[in-house]
């Protein structure tokens, strides 16, 4: 298990977008937070798409391939696994993923990446 000491209070559950993403400001960093309501799952990844270094993943469409949850970058539709960060479009660039927890209606993101 990943030892998390730094939990960022990102937003209220109702501020997140159902089956979509929002962007969370974390100092100079940007984290994409996804509320996958259909699967009742939360995911957080870096907001920057590594392909063209665009701050865009939080605006991407989410979905799944077989059972792997994924997000598609709005720029060129590169897809990344939400659970592992692996690029599913055959490229070598993976994205960072972060743990998410919900307490008392607040969404917290662990700011030490899982991967």
């Amino acid at each position: 298990m990943n030892e998390q000491s730094n939990w960022l209070a990102a937003c209220r559950v109702e501020d997140a977008i159902e089956n979509g993403g929002v962007c969370v400001k974390h100092g100079e960093d940007q984290i994409a937070l996804f509320y996958f309501t259909r699967r009742n799952e939360w995911y957080a990844t870096q907001n920057e798409c590594p392909h063209k270094k665009q701050m865009a993943l939080s605006r991407g469409m989410i979905g799944s391939t077989t059972d792997e949850p994924k997000v598609a970058c709005p720029f060129h539709k590169k897809t990344f696994s939400l659970s592992t960060g692996e690029c599913l479009s055959g490229d070598e660039c993976a994205i960072k993923t972060y743990p998410v927890k919900i307490e008392n209606g607040t969404v917290y993101i662990g700011t030490t990446p899982k991967s």
């Binding site: 977008i17 159902e18 089956n19 979509g20 665009q54 701050m55 865009a56 605006r59 991407g60 469409m61 989410i62 709005p74 720029f75």
Partner: peptide, 22 residues
């Protein structure tokens, strides 16, 4: 409309054309 917004392609989602840089 809520629910359909996240099913729109990126340009339709924000009713504008996303350009290089964001």
């Amino acid at each position: 409309k809520k629910g359909n917004d996240v099913a729109q392609d990126s340009n339709d989602r924000f009713l504008a054309n996303i350009q290089k840089g964001g």
